[in-house]
Amino acid sequence: LSFPSLARGTAKSPVTNIMFLKTHKTASSTVFNVLLRFAEKHNLSVALPEGEHFHLGYPWLFLARYVEGSEQQRRFNIMCNHLRFNPPEVQKVMPEDTFYFSILRNPVFQLESSFIYYKSYVPAFQAARNLSAFLASPWTYYNRSASLNNAYARNNMWFDFGFDNNAWPEDGYVRARIAAVERHFQLVLIAEYFDESMVLLSHVLHWTLDDVAYFKLNSRSQSSVTSLTPQDQERAKRWCALDWHLYQYFNRTFWARIHTELGPRRLRNQVALLQERRHQLTDLCVQDGAPKKQSQIKDLQLKPYQSGEADILGYNLRLGLDNATLQLCQRMVMPELQY
Rank of each mutant, 00 (worst) to 15 (best):
S5W: 04
L6I: 10
R8D: 07
R8K: 11
G9I: 01
G9F: 00
S13L: 13
S13V: 10
S13T: 13
S13N: 14
P14M: 09
I18W: 03
I18V: 12
L21K: 03
K25M: 10
S29L: 04
V31E: 00
V31R: 02
N33D: 06
L36M: 10
F38W: 05
A39D: 06
A39M: 11
E40P: 12
E40N: 15
K41R: 15
N43Y: 11
L44T: 07
V46A: 09
A47K: 00
L48M: 14
P49V: 10
P49C: 11
H55F: 15
H55Y: 14
A64C: 10
A64T: 08
E68D: 12
S70A: 15
Q72W: 15
R75W: 13
N77W: 03
I78T: 04
R84M: 04
F85S: 06
N86Q: 10
P87A: 08
P88D: 12
Q91Y: 10
M94D: 02
D97A: 12
F99M: 07
L104W: 01
V108Q: 07
F109E: 05
S114H: 09
Y117H: 09
V122R: 00
P123E: 02
Q126P: 01
A127Q: 12
A128S: 02
S132L: 03
T140R: 09
Y141L: 05
N143G: 12
S145T: 12
L148Y: 06
L148M: 08
N150M: 08
A153D: 06
R154C: 09
F159P: 00
D160M: 04
F163H: 02
N166Q: 07
A167G: 01
W168A: 10
D171K: 06
G172Y: 03
V174F: 03
R177F: 03
V181C: 02
R183Q: 10
H184L: 08
Y193P: 00
F194W: 06
E196V: 01
E196S: 06
V204M: 12
V204T: 15
L205G: 01
L209N: 02
D210N: 09
D210R: 07
D210A: 08
D211K: 04
A213I: 07
A213K: 02
S219M: 06
R220N: 07
S221G: 15
Q222I: 12
S223V: 15
L228V: 13
Q231E: 13
A236F: 13
K237P: 06
K237Y: 10
R238L: 09
A241P: 03
A241H: 04
N251Q: 13
T253Y: 10
T253H: 09
W255I: 06
W255H: 09
H259R: 15
R265P: 07
R266E: 13
L267P: 00
L274T: 02
Q275A: 12
H279L: 14
Q280M: 15
L281I: 13
Q287M: 14
D288V: 09
D288C: 13
P291L: 11
Q294D: 04
S295M: 14
Q296R: 14
I297G: 03
K303N: 06
K303G: 03
Q306D: 08
G308N: 09
Y315W: 07
N316Q: 10
L317D: 00
L319K: 14
Q327M: 12
Q330A: 06
M334V: 01
L337K: 05
